[in-house]
């Protein structure tokens, strides 16, 4: 397996390594996944009676979502910092910044948990209205993406990272760059979700 070329070094004519091309193609498919759901949102919003989406949309908590937006943007910044630290050979700083990223992700989930249970507490479920249905579907799928990303981030925060750092520094930096791209994408999805669900 080690004979596969361009795992880390760039192929001269494409200027990419394998993993970077792979993650961009994966993200393209993710764009289509959320794109499909966003267009379903538009379709349903047009089909809904006047004011239906506004009425149900007003039941969401804008302060909570604003806080979560801040949290995710912060996590994106620290994600880049952790990668930059690796490039600057500062392994301790890498661990710190990655730790902050993981904490931000946890904070996001924590707030989301309160939002969800708050809704359930008031008797609001996905079946309550079309808006609530698409709200729970879109944010639920986004939460799954956050959890998936968190699992990978935690993996690269454990002793496993120390081992990789000792064996192959470039490989670790490459992996962090790749998961970073994914993390920014998940952040970006939220940047779209926030206005269309909470503000519109």
């Amino acid at each position: 397996m080690s004979s596969i070329p361009y795992i880390l070094e760039e192929r001269p004519d494409t200027g990419l390594n394998n993993a970077k091309l792979g993650i961009w193609i994966f993200l393209a498919s993710e764009v289509m996944l959320f794109g499909g759901l966003f267009s379903a949102y538009v379709f349903l919003r047009f089909a809904a009676p006047e004011g239906d989406f506004d009425y149900w949309g007003s039941k969401l908590s804008v302060p909570m979502a604003t806080f979560n937006t801040m949290v995710l943007i912060t996590s994106s910044v620290t994600m880049v910092m952790s990668w930059a630290s690796l490039k600057l050979q500062q392994f301790d700083k890498y661990k710190m910044y990655l730790g902050i990223t993981i904490l931000c992700a946890a904070a996001f989930l924590f707030v989301k948990y309160f939002e969800y249970t708050g809704k359930f507490h008031h008797g609001i479920y996905p079946s309550s209205s079309t808006f609530m249905g698409i709200y729970f579907t879109l944010t639920g799928l986004h939460v799954l993406h956050i959890i998936g990303g968190m699992v990978v981030l935690i993996f690269f925060w454990t002793k496993q990272a120390d081992k990789m750092w000792a064996e192959n520094q470039d490989l670790l930096a490459n992996r962090i760059e790749i998961i970073g791209l994914y993390w920014h994408f998940v952040d970006l999805v939220w940047i779209f979700l926030f206005p269309i669900l909470y503000l519109l």
Partner: peptide, 25 residues
């Protein structure tokens, strides 16, 4: 496959919600 399958996944999620969570997409 990369670009066409995800919208079906989105549709499948919505249909699953209709069947399990009682939504009416």
């Amino acid at each position: 496959l990369i670009l066409a399958f995800p919208p079906l996944e989105a549709a499948a999620v919505l249909q699953l919600m209709d069947r399990i969570a009682g939504t009416s997409f």
